[in-house]
């Protein structure tokens, strides 16, 4: 049984199908990319997996849990984390606070311990801080630690998004165009981060990305969506040679 199973998912918005009978399977530890022209339904699919949208038809299972009607916090608690395409950070808070928020469910102490602070709550907070600092280190965010996120440049905020998802210590990481709008150098860094997460933590990754060069380089398998349908899937090389894919890309983006 695959770790993530999306079975025949259809998602309808006011009569229009954003997804029609999409099926997808991801094995533990795999890096799977989803590509497709703008409006193909890639983000909608991630929204279904992470609980922000609920499929009109079909089923989603993660490690045996039925996620079809789950809310985002339930999906998160099962071990699914997500970096949003349109940055969704807590803009009034610092980088550090944003990442600490990812430790919300892991910090187990109760209200009484929290209002006294010294003791249980403090110990847990210090541990959370140490873990968050590791992520900050890993994502090379040290210079921005105490900066309010709202004022940071776009590329850095994208990186904070990914860092916050990592701070959740997920089993499955969903990345929605983490490199969009970045400079070449920033892109190279992000690719390195993604590969390192995979090799160091063995996290399963689902990546949406428009840069086909990157996708073909790093993915184990690729799914191609067009008008809400999976038109091809398989190892990168096979998919790249698929005539329907070439057609969709020429037709979609020309």
């Amino acid at each position: 049984m695959a770790q993530l199973e999306v079975e025949n998912v259809t998602l309808v918005f006011g009569g229009l199908a954003a997804l029609s009978a999409v099926s997808l399977e991801v094995e533990e530890g795999e890096l799977v990319s989803i590509i497709g022209p703008n409006g193909a339904g890639k983000t909608s699919l991630l929204n279904c997996i992470s609980g922000f949208y609920h499929p009109t038809r079909g089923r989603i299972r993660f490690e045996g849990h039925d996620l079809t009607h789950a809310s985002p916090h339930t999906a998160t608690r099962y071990g699914i984390a997500r970096a949003f395409q349109n940055i969704e950070l807590f803009s009034g808070l610092t980088v550090l606070e944003n990442l600490l928020l990812a430790r919300y469910t892991h910090l187990g102490y109760g209200l009484a311990a929290a209002s006294v602070y010294y003791g249980r709550a403090q110990e847990a907070e210090v541990r959370a801080r140490a873990l968050v600092e590791e992520v900050i280190d890993f994502m090379e965010l040290e210079p921005y630690r105490k900066a309010p996120v709202g004022n940071l440049p776009y590329g850095v905020r994208k990186r904070v998004e990914v860092a916050r998802a990592l701070a959740l210590e997920p089993k499955l990481l969903l990345l929605d165009e983490p490199m969009a709008g970045m400079t070449l150098e920033e892109k190279e860094d992000m690719v390195r981060f993604i590969l390192d997460v995979r090799s160091e933590r063995g996290t399963t990754i689902v990546l949406i990305e428009h840069d086909l060069g990157v996708v073909m380089d790093i993915s184990d398998r690729v799914y191609v969506l067009d008008f809400g349908e999976v038109i091809a899937s398989g190892p990168p090389r096979e998919v790249a040679e698929n005539p329907r894919v070439l057609e969709a890309y020429v037709g979609g983006e020309a």
Partner: peptide, 14 residues
């Protein structure tokens, strides 16, 4: 503060 700043993201934090 999280629910003040961003509901959706708060939800995604669990």
């Amino acid at each position: 503060v999280a629910v003040r700043d961003n509901d959706r993201a708060a939800d995604a934090m669990g």
